[in-house]
Amino acid sequence: MIENISVQEAIALFQHQWQPQGMEVIPLEEANTRILGDTLYAKESIPVVRASMMDGIAIKGDNYTKDPSHWVYGKDYIRADTGDDFSDDFDTVIAIEKVNMEDGKLSWREDFPFEKGMNVRHRGSTIKENTLLLEKGSRLNATALALLAMGNHGEVKVYKKPKVVFIPTGSELVGVGTKLSRGENIDSNSPMAEVLLEDFGAVPILYPITKDDPESLRAAVKKALKEGDMVLINGGSSKGEEDFNLRILEEMGEVFFHWTQCGPGRPAAMAKIENKPVFIVPGPAYGCFNVLQWLIGPCIRYLTGAQEPYYYKVKAKLKESVQAPTHFQFLLGAQVERNEEGDLLVNLLSFKKNGVPDCLKANGFVHTKPGMNPFQAGDEIEVNLLKPV
């Protein structure tokens, strides 16, 4: 078992042990946020032949005249609507705003520059057959679905979502909304984990609180291995008297590492039981958030075919100097705001100095890197946004 593993080594070890999920074909309308399993191309051209760019009349360009009063509807001109095809006998469209029809006679409301073929979208002007739409591994969103629909893909092959079971543990834990008694604490990690796991591309399965009892935990893990593709045990990862979760994983399977070079939440662990990944995620809220971000998120993305995290990154100027550990990675909350000039400014928050609530309220976060220089006031740094600014 490796102790004090680095971020890169931990993720590489996971990828060495497990392969991405299989594929499934689903309707396009159900594919939002899914990861594309194939590179897709447009099946046909749009327009299929040609189409009018606007509402107007279609005419024969060679017959254009400044006095069309003698023209006959259906022979010399017809109506043309935006986006619609029209008869091959006609090749040019004149905007309806320039057309006057009185007493059955056609005339122009004003002079305009005329060119044969004007205001007509030709075959494939919107999209051509075999145009590359999206690469395999693309994460689908609203505009991606519109693009695939334009390419006439009613169904898409996507990576299956892994089912991830989250097991909160601790005899002190009670559910949200429970009146606290002495020695009790709220399970605040389950609602956070549910949202993050969905964001990462998984199907979260939240288990009820498991008390600090070895037999109860064994039973919960055995059940979770049947229901899920990955299991997260929340809590019991350190060296306290009731922190026996690691010993149970050693009994049930193979533990690959314990303790990591990324805090808070350094006593995380990864094991393999019945050929499925089982993680211990530390119990303190900001440590849980950190491990979910740097470890669990990348592992889920790997299983779903998406290697890169989906953060909105911005650069902001640091308002105050900050001290943080330099011998391992460390998570800092980042509160980003705009000044009157529209520039982005940021305060970095440590859970030890500023408290967990302020860190959880922050609209972004930053990871320090081992060996980096301390953050100084005025530095421009890159921030991962969690909320719009």
Score class of each variant (00 low, 15 high):
residue 151 G to N: 01
residue 253 G to K: 05
residue 381 I to Y: 08
residue 282 P to Y: 07
residue 328 F to A: 10
residue 154 G to N: 14
residue 364 G to H: 02
residue 341 E to T: 12
residue 226 K to G: 15
residue 295 L to N: 01
residue 59 I to N: 03
residue 187 D to C: 05
residue 221 V to E: 04
residue 265 G to W: 01
residue 256 F to D: 01
residue 6 S to C: 03
residue 102 E to R: 13
residue 89 D to S: 10
residue 254 E to Q: 14
residue 286 Y to T: 11
residue 11 I to A: 02
residue 223 K to Q: 14
residue 167 I to P: 01
residue 71 W to K: 07
residue 114 F to L: 08
residue 44 E to C: 09
residue 268 A to E: 01
residue 294 W to A: 00
residue 286 Y to G: 02
residue 60 K to H: 11
residue 329 Q to E: 15
residue 241 E to F: 09
residue 249 L to R: 00
residue 187 D to V: 05
residue 368 T to Y: 00
residue 304 T to F: 03
residue 181 S to M: 14
residue 329 Q to C: 15
residue 2 I to S: 11
residue 114 F to H: 04
residue 208 P to M: 00
residue 243 D to A: 04
residue 82 T to Y: 13
residue 253 G to P: 07
residue 115 E to K: 14
residue 242 E to S: 14
residue 304 T to C: 12
residue 325 P to A: 10
residue 198 E to D: 13
residue 112 F to G: 08
residue 281 V to H: 00
residue 135 E to T: 12
residue 280 I to L: 13
residue 7 V to M: 07
residue 146 A to D: 12
residue 256 F to N: 05
residue 285 A to F: 10
residue 251 E to H: 05
residue 62 D to S: 15
residue 334 A to R: 01
residue 7 V to Q: 09
residue 112 F to P: 07
residue 157 K to D: 07
residue 160 K to R: 15
residue 286 Y to D: 06
residue 363 N to Y: 04
residue 205 I to C: 08
residue 318 L to W: 05
residue 327 H to L: 13
residue 247 R to P: 03
residue 278 V to C: 06
residue 70 H to S: 15
residue 353 K to T: 13
residue 97 E to D: 15
residue 17 Q to I: 10
residue 119 N to V: 05
residue 229 D to W: 08
